[in-house]
């Protein structure tokens, strides 16, 4: 076992699949020689050659469309969108085309593409780098959306995403890239998409989170424990499809839930989960299901982001409200 950061685990996953399957191609802006702006593809071009790991011209729509063409000729593309805020440039290629190809071809043209991209707030980026845009993608039928919260999951989920025969949007929270290391097996392993993990068991309230908010939730649970409140923390790992079974099972036990996301409040993953909880478990609820989210503005200039981003105090406050309802 090796100690790895999340970015190292991600590189390791790509290396594993480049080795396993000659149809895997890794490319994007600065992905080749430079190894990516975050070094996610560090050393891969040297190891696997310029034919399989390469730089592209600076055009996201072109990257998206080209990925479809490569998939049509039997490749398994792993393109990178340098920052997920740039996805707007390629929304047609991903949502309008890639996501619909299996369907529009009557099931004959699968799109085994994994679009990797960094996102997430708290690292003082310029505009359109930090936005949590997963909600835009989860509304699109045909896409799977994966957001790991730690190095171990990142490797297993990325290998599984690359092997998946449907398009996967694999979102990597920038703040988690190098924030901590953990033990990650050097050998290959996979984590099933669409399966959540209970990170912490508790009987009083369910906290549903994904990405960096999993850590915020865990921090809040420690605070809550001091007040004798035992929170159960669920890491979704995949936000499309969502593992409702694990959520409902937990809510049936705790009877209370708070759903967390770094994205703005309206029409996001959290809203979807709240709906599902009330549809499937309303008689188990002792309090309304609340959300902890960012406010409904565009992502702020970086001087305001620390206040804008939801933090563990916001979670504690919302949990206290559902406990005292």
């Amino acid at each position: 076992m090796a100690q790895m950061t999340m970015i190292q685990a991600i590189t390791d996953a790509m290396r594993t699949e480049l080795k396993n399957d000659e149809n895997v191609l890794v490319y994007g802006e600065d992905v080749g020689l430079n190894g990516g702006v975050f070094r996610a593809t560090e050393g891969l071009q040297k190891e696997f050659g310029e034919d399989r790991v390469f730089d592209t011209p600076l055009a996201e729509s072109g990257i998206g469309g080209m990925s479809i063409g490569l998939a049509l000729t039997g490749f398994r593309p792993v393109p990178e969108i340098q920052f997920f805020g740039f996805v707007y440039e390629t929304m047609d290629a991903i949502n309008g085309q890639m996501a619909r190809y299996r369907y529009r071809s009557g099931g004959t043209r699968p799109m085994p593409i994994t679009v990797r991209s960094p996102f997430g707030g708290g690292v003082h980026t310029p505009e359109l780098h930090a936005d949590s845009l997963e909600g835009l993608m989860t509304q699109q039928p045909g896409l799977k959306v994966v957001i790991p919260s730690n190095p171990y999951d990142a490797k297993g989920l990325l290998i599984q995403s690359i092997r998946d025969n449907d398009p996967v949007i694999f979102l990597e929270h920038m703040k988690l890239y190098r924030s901590f290391r953990e033990e990650v097996p050097e050998e290959e392993y996979t984590i099933e998409l669409g399966k959540a993990e209970v990170k912490r068991e508790g009987k009083d309230v369910t906290l549903v989170a994904y990405g960096a908010m999993v850590h915020t939730a865990l921090k809040a649970s420690e605070e809550l424990e001091k007040d004798g409140i035992e929170a159960e923390v669920i890491d979704l790992r995949t936000v499309a499809p969502i593992d409702y079974e694990t959520i409902i099972e937990s809510v049936q036990k705790t009877n209370r839930a708070v759903v967390l996301q770094e994205a703005q409040k309206q029409a996001g993953v959290a809203a979807q989960i709240v709906s599902e909880i009330q549809e499937k478990a309303i008689l188990h609820l002792e309090a309304p299901v609340l959300r902890v989210t960012a406010p409904d503005t565009v992502y702020p200039f970086s001087q305001a982001e620390q206040v804008w981003l939801p933090n563990h105090n916001d979670i504690v406050e919302k949990v206290n409200r559902v406990m005292n309802f």
Partner: peptide, 17 residues
Amino acid sequence: GAQITQAAGVGLGYKKR
């Protein structure tokens, strides 16, 4: 126009193969 970037990909795929 969506087919145009895809055609570049198919043509690249053929070249790689």
